[in-house]
Design a protein around this nucleic acid. Structure first.
Length: 819
DNA sequence: CTAAGACGAGTTTTT
DNA sequence: CTCGTCTTAG
């Protein structure tokens, strides 16, 4: 029976209609994917091929045709954004009970499992989650305590080792140490584990690994979930690491565990991914999981989505030809009905500054052509490249937004506040304890803390519990701190989340401390924002799905548990009085989880029509009308660290593939002959990737130079080498003169500049502000320029803000964008 | 305890 | 060059 036969039969019975509107406008491959029969399948989804649509429609279709109830669905993604997107689209498609489904990130779902089975997972019910920062400080603390030479074993490296081991699903005992250094690292890993266990905290890797082990070691639990999740869907499968793969295997019943092999016939796993977009090997992702999946899950249906709905064919041809240079591929070619569109424009500049200025001019033209600024993206390989571009945009008064950097919940003041909150939940969280024990300062110095740590270690207790062991004045300060925390904990019982946070902000002295600080205004504002975040968390999310534990009664009532030996507890608290209502976390605990698992938006400058700046990695999953890929130079893109081996060079190529496929209408590739890097000017050769693009799709805006000849240059040999024609290196002001900018002077003979050449810029950059101008500031919002003075770096502007009054701002520091 | 200065590192990153 | 971290002096 064909998949759609199956469907139409079911839907006819249900709604009387001939076919569900759900399936309208799907192409043949999409339709096949959506209506796949039960069983494991791999969907190879090219960029822009409607992957998310297929995934969500599949779920809706399964539900609508009654093949599964909401409770039988599990969909897992990598980012909260993707998970949210799925939920939103799904609810738009069907009036469905999203609550019953498990849709979330790997870590979110693991957290959910561990919250529900904390006892079996050997965790305290109040366990806290360490983010990467917390993890690093925990490791530093540990290494100091055990007098580990941090020259030989940098904390960062230890962290990397531990995280890497967990990604591979390895406990200290599973690691074969070959060298003394390795043995030491394994020992540190072991000690770190003990420390975390003692403190009741888990890091991101632990969330995954612990829930994997929970399933592996508890037959009833595993079998319950295996029975429950009949349809498992995995997004971005090419990004899964070893452990995540094993986790999926365990959950779907495709593995023998604890001697009880559970046949997987109940469960269908649909893996959706694109091997050509695998760009996260450096953090443990294993593309090989895709072929392993086909083999080990006995995949019989493979569907390739190649029809692209995003870009014109010049762009797609470029992407296709580039990626065809990779040897290790499953094989896929994007196609479109949209026609060729405009050529891909290539620009060469003498300096990185000139590259940026050209780009600004081009953007101006694009704006005149009717493109929104938010539809223009500048992509670069590494963050350091954003600086010149930002400067150019700033000087030209073009609003822009940079992705990346600290997110809301990662800011220092927020972490401080959260640390207090965490201590209320879990007094043994030493990382949080140390973060705030002397912040704001309360006379507790390094020496005091050392003796406290010694005492705690000797007694095998947490820092909180060991304060009484320290005497003297310092001891009194410590006792006062602990008393303050304990009192706060009392005071916050039965109080709303908002009030808890307000109490903590008041009594911790944080707000007061920042008030005394001349530059503390921003921080106070962020702390206020934390209250808002908590408020909207409670109202909007109803504690957030990630944090809500599995309703306890669900497991008990499931037919699965009925045959179980009653003496064998399936649940942590099967008979608790509140079991009937479903055990949920306290609002505070839920909020803390939310903060750890969802670090919040970058700096959502919502509404601003601004040019988008980001790394290529950050651009994955996004799309724009106009895309500039900058710094297309050997050593930068592909990155020098990736030139030496085949595998990572292929990953660089995939990265380029991702970058190209972000563009809908216009694509620009630019490279510069020289570039400031690490305070030195580097001479760069244009990227080898240019030679892998179809000439017919390109338009050279500047005279085309000799291509890169990989065989002629050894690794790194490209720098400082000369190229045909130019020979002008070292000529200083010589570049950019005359011929290079003359319109139509291209050797290809077919180009004219889309915009007038950039005049050589004078040293003093103009800030482009005028009195009376409406401007936008990240912190203060909108305002009016009331006065200007000074030039260059000393330039200042007086701005009257709607909400924050009149302020003088140094333009070299403050980011003001015209509205 | 704070502030200034030395020092070193410097792809990519979500949870 | 430029940022963050660590050390040292007051």
């Amino acid at each position: 029976m064909l998949p759609h036969d199956l469907f139409s039969g079911a839907s006819a019975a249900d709604s009387g209609g001939p076919a569900s509107p759900l399936l309208n406008n799907l192409n043949a491959e999409q339709l096949a994917a959506v209506t796949l029969p039960a069983g494991n399948a791999l969907i190879l989804a090219g960029a822009g091929s409607g992957k998310t649509r297929v995934l969500t429609t599949r779920i809706a279709w399964l539900l609508q045709t009654g093949q599964v109830s909401a409770g039988g669905i599990l969909a897992v993604t990598f980012t909260n954004k993707a998970a949210k997107e799925m939920m939103t689209r799904l609810t738009a498609m069907l009036p469905v009970n999203v609550r019953g489904m498990w849709i979330g990130t790997f870590h979110g779902l693991c957290n959910r499992l561990l919250r529900a089975h904390w006892k079996l997972a050997n965790l305290p019910s109040t366990f806290q989650i360490l983010d990467t920062q917390d993890q690093l400080s925990a490791i530093k603390r540990l290494m100091k305590q055990f007098n580990v030479d941090d020259e030989r074993f940098p904390a960062k490296q230890t962290q990397w080792f531990i995280a890497g081991a967990k990604e591979d699903g390895l406990r200290p005992g599973d690691i074969e140490a070959r060298s003394d250094d390795d043995r030491k690292k394994v020992e540190l890993y072991q000690l770190y584990e003990e420390q975390c266990q003692r403190e009741g905290v888990v890091d991101f890797g632990e969330l995954m690994l612990r829930s994997y082990e929970l399933l592996r070691d508890n037959d009833p639990v595993r079998e319950h979930y295996q029975r429950r999740f009949r349809h498992i869907m995995v997004d971005e499968f090419q990004d899964t690491n070893r452990l995540q793969y094993a986790w999926l295997k365990m959950l779907s019943g495709h593995t023998a565990a604890g001697g009880h092999f559970t046949p997987g016939e109940h469960n269908s796993v649909i893996a959706v991914g694109d091997d050509d977009q695998s760009i996260y090997a450096f953090r443990g992702a294993r593309v090989g999981n895709m072929t392993d999946f086909v083999r080990e899950f006995n995949v019989r249906h493979q569907i390739i989505l190649e029809q692209n709905y995003r870009s014109y064919s010049n762009i797609l041809d470029s992407a296709n030809q580039l990626i065809s240079n990779n040897k290790k591929r499953l094989g896929k070619n994007l196609r479109t009905d949209q026609g060729p569109g405009e050529p891909v424009r290539v620009y060469e500049s003498p300096t990185d500054l000139a590259e940026a200025q050209w780009m600004v001019e081009e953007m101006r033209q694009l704006t005149r052509d009717g493109f929104d600024r938010k539809e223009m993206a500048v992509l670069y390989r590494s963050n350091a490249q954003s600086r010149v571009i930002e400067t150019a945009l700033f000087n030209a008064s073009v609003p822009y937004r940079v992705y990346g950097g600290l997110r809301f919940f990662e800011r220092a003041e927020i972490k401080h506040a959260l640390a207090y909150l965490r201590l209320l939940e879990n007094k043994d969280d030493d990382t949080s304890f140390l973060r705030v024990v002397n912040f704001p300062p309360r006379g507790i110095g390094a020496r005091t803390l050392e003796s406290l740590q010694d005492a705690a270690r000797a007694a095998g207790r947490s820092l909180h519990d060991a304060v009484s062991a320290v005497g003297g004045k310092a001891g009194a300060n410590l006792t006062a701190f602990v008393a303050k925390i304990d009192v706060l904990r009392e005071q916050t019982q039965g109080v709303s989340l908002r009030e808890i946070i307000e109490l903590v902000l008041d009594h911790s002295g944080l707000v007061e401390h920042y008030k005394a600080d001349r530059e503390g205004a921003d921080r106070i504002e962020n702390l206020d924002e934390l209250v808002n975040a908590a408020e909207s968390f409670v109202t909007q999310e109803g504690f957030g799905r990630d944090a809500v534990a599995l309703p306890v009664d669900e497991l008990r009532q499931s037919p699965a548990s009925q045959g179980l030996d009653p003496s064998r507890p399936v649940l942590d608290e099967p008979l608790a009085p509140d079991a009937e209502t479903g055990e949920t976390l306290s609002p505070l605990a839920a909020f803390l989880t939310h903060a750890a698992l969802e670090s919040g938006d970058n700096q959502a400058q919502a509404g601003q029509d601004a040019v988008q700046l980001m790394t290529v990695h950050a651009a994955k999953g996004l799309e724009f009308d106009c895309v500039f890929i900058t710094g297309m130079e050997e050593g930068l893109f592909p990155h020098e660290n990736s030139l030496s081996d085949f595998e990572s060079l292929e990953e660089e190529r995939r990265l380029m593939y991702v970058a190209i496929t972000r563009a809908r209408k216009r694509l620009y590739l630019s490279h510069s002959q020289t570039r400031m890097l690490h305070g030195q000017t580097r001479y760069n050769v244009k990227s080898r990737f240019f030679d892998e693009l179809p000439e017919s799709a390109l338009k050279w805006l500047t005279p085309k130079n000799q291509g890169f000849a990989p065989s002629a240059f050894g690794y790194g040999g490209g720098y400082g080498s000369t190229r045909g024609g130019s020979g002008a290196y070292g000529g200083g002001g010589g570049y950019g003169g005359g011929n290079r900018y003359s319109a139509g002077g291209s050797s290809a003979g077919k180009d004219t500049f889309a915009s007038p050449p950039v005049p050589p810029q004078k040293a003093a950059p103009s800030h482009g502000l005028r009195s009376g101008m409406q401007v936008f500031h990240n912190k203060f919002g909108e305002g009016t320029v009331t006065a200007l003075e000074g030039t260059g770096d000393d330039a200042r502007a007086q701005v009257k803000f709607a909400r924050h009054g009149v302020k003088w701002l140094a333009l070299s520091v403050a980011k003001l964008t015209p509205v």
